[in-house]
Design a protein around this nucleic acid. Structure first.
Lengths: 351, 351
DNA sequence: TTGTACGCGTTATCAT
DNA sequence: ATGATAACGCGTACAA
């Protein structure tokens, strides 16, 4: 079944069928009805490939993320797919993994597919070495690129980020204000955003004029699901004599590990150990007590990212960078008041 | 840049360029090299739409799931995408939601895109009413359909499932054998697989000649993330006077709620309350104690599903149905021995 | 309001 | 081993 078959059966030319199909106003109602009847009866659907060839688009957008089963990225993909679909776009999903090669492959795959845009979700896509971001810039010269939680200043690249520096600083300040000065910063990623969080932690100490201790910034080098490993890692630190009364984690999963560590060692939470996670994910409510966490407004960010994307595809002028503000959500692993953390957000504007 | 530009620069016809591109053996090595040099230098890539039009495929496969941010489905999508990519296919992801309309829309969208195959992940896609599965059968007449965790006997539909009936029965038997006869079955889905699990629970009681109590099979009607709601739901049951010393949940998230319920009411786990979850997801290790859960071999199932899919696309003969066996993974919320549960798997073969 | 004819960039068939 | 040319099915400029 193609447009010729329909045109023959309806006794009109393919141009008229095409016009009916695409809702052109220049069709006599009677003709339109006649054609529509044939189309409905036959169940004809235009061939998407032919359409794509002529229009140079199949209305599809690529989404790259490192691991779509990661709690945070899974949410991001879900929000983005929903919004794009509402705007008439299909999503081609590629999980790139965390290695550079995988990222480049994913991007080139999508460009070969001639997607209308590429969305890269996750801070892992912008790296410290400028040359490692070259491949994104090259892609952007062909197709608009939209980054979620990563920042890259380049034409045709649009960033939607959460200010992780401020959020981490606020969280740290909240702990410092409550009188805890031995805060262990626990992280598992050295990505752009990972480094921003670390800087935020450090900035809070500077603000409070408390010297930093390198041992209190610990990198956990393990799988994103190895909660038990995090727990053992902290036990190891304790055995080495490291003393800390709070853990600020760059990810909720690390925070869950910290809570487990506390329980295993009979350390009361939050009385003797405060814990703050990051992402305010489902994990925070699985834990007992529930984990205080930084909410980084993922849904709002995704919604904004798609809005920007659609705008760009419609040749509207769009901001190359939109910054959201994280918010500390107090739950059961801290004994902080909202007042304290809020006052800190207003300080430190000099950073 | 198109194939004509390359052919001109190389001083050959487009046919030769095409042959070089597609690795035809009928090209003189010297010519091949000459053409390849031009291609490499210019960075030319064949137009995917034109290619699609000619070959009637763009090597893309649709994945439909209700909610790609659901822990279980997210894993499924991840495994499937990875395997398909290794086989040279791209994935178009659509989240259909749990309503019928969304599912139909998703499917028709993919068919319009002329995907090579459709994968529907999740038990929600096969419903009790045969007419509600009509849309899948129709799709199957155009494109092969692969179901994960759902069973539909229809030409061109291939099913990869886990025997949830047996798994639920084994889990229930394990509890019964340990002397607990008041087991609350908690579920949140009336899908095909949801009903299978429920039947498994009931079958175990039959096997042990213990009468069923309708109050002990409770449906939780809430969001997939409302752990607090589950907890309150159980508290409500307790207040109504319902007595149970074990909870068998159709989903880990429900089991997490049960553990929380136990803690809130100072019920010792597993001493006074055993809890078994389903899916053996990350949630089971977030909880304290870690939750005993039914592992349904998701990764193996996905791998098999993709293998079947690739086989079908290559016109190989493939089995329309592959059944996996779940396995009870003992963790901290039960006091069962492997022996007990294993012996039950061998009984009841008459079901 | 409608129809004709061409272009989109491949792949494949058939000559040579 | 290579080239000319016909599909593939649609959108659309232009003509009528």
């Amino acid at each position: 079944m193609n447009i010729y078959d329909i045109s023959k059966q309806a006794g009109v030319s393919i141009a008229t069928v095409s016009r009916v199909l695409n809702g052109s106003p220049n069709v006599k109602p009677a003709t339109r009805k006649k054609v529509m009847d044939i189309i409905d009866r036959s169940g004809y659907v235009p061939n998407a490939f032919a359409r794509g060839l002529g229009l140079d688009t199949m209305n599809s957008i690529g989404i790259i993320c490192a691991d779509s089963s990661d709690l945070y990225l899974a949410k991001a993909v879900y929000y983005i797919e929903n919004d794009l679909r509402k705007n008439g776009y299909n999503c081609i999903l590629i999980c790139s993994g965390y290695e550079h090669k995988g990222k480049e492959d994913a991007l080139s795959r999508l460009l070969n597919q001639r997607v209308d845009a590429v969305i890269m979700a996750g801070s892992t896509y912008v790296e410290a070495e400028p040359k490692d971001n070259r491949y994104i810039m090259n892609a952007a010269s062909q197709t608009p690129v939209f980054l979620l939680n990563a920042d890259l200043d380049c034409p045709n690249v649009y960033c939607t980020v959460c200010d992780d520096f401020k959020a981490a600083r606020s969280a740290t300040c909240a702990l410092l204000n409550s009188g805890i000065t031995d805060i262990l910063y626990l992280y598992n990623s050295r990505s752009y955003s990972g480094m921003k969080k670390l800087s935020g932690y450090q900035a809070a100490y500077h603000m409070h004029k408390i010297p930093l201790n390198a041992d209190m910034m610990q990198f956990f080098d393990g799988s994103h699901e190895n909660i038990d490993g995090v727990c053992r890692f902290l036990c190891g630190l304790k055995e080495q004599g490291l003393v800390f009364h709070a853990v600020l984690a760059s990810d909720d999963m690390l925070a869950v590990g910290a809570v487990k560590y506390g329980k295993m060692n009979h350390i009361a939470i939050p009385e003797e150990l405060s814990v703050i996670g990051y992402n305010n994910s489902l994990l925070t409510v699985c834990s007992d007590p529930e984990i205080t966490s930084v909410d980084n407004k993922l849904e709002a960010m995704c919604s904004q990212l798609v809005r920007t994307c659609i705008g760009v595809l419609n040749s509207e002028s769009m901001p190359p960078k939109v910054v959201y503000q994280g918010e500390l959500i107090h739950k059961g692993t801290t004994r902080l008041t909202d007042q304290q953390s809020k006052s800190d957000q207003h300080k430190g504007g000099h950073f």
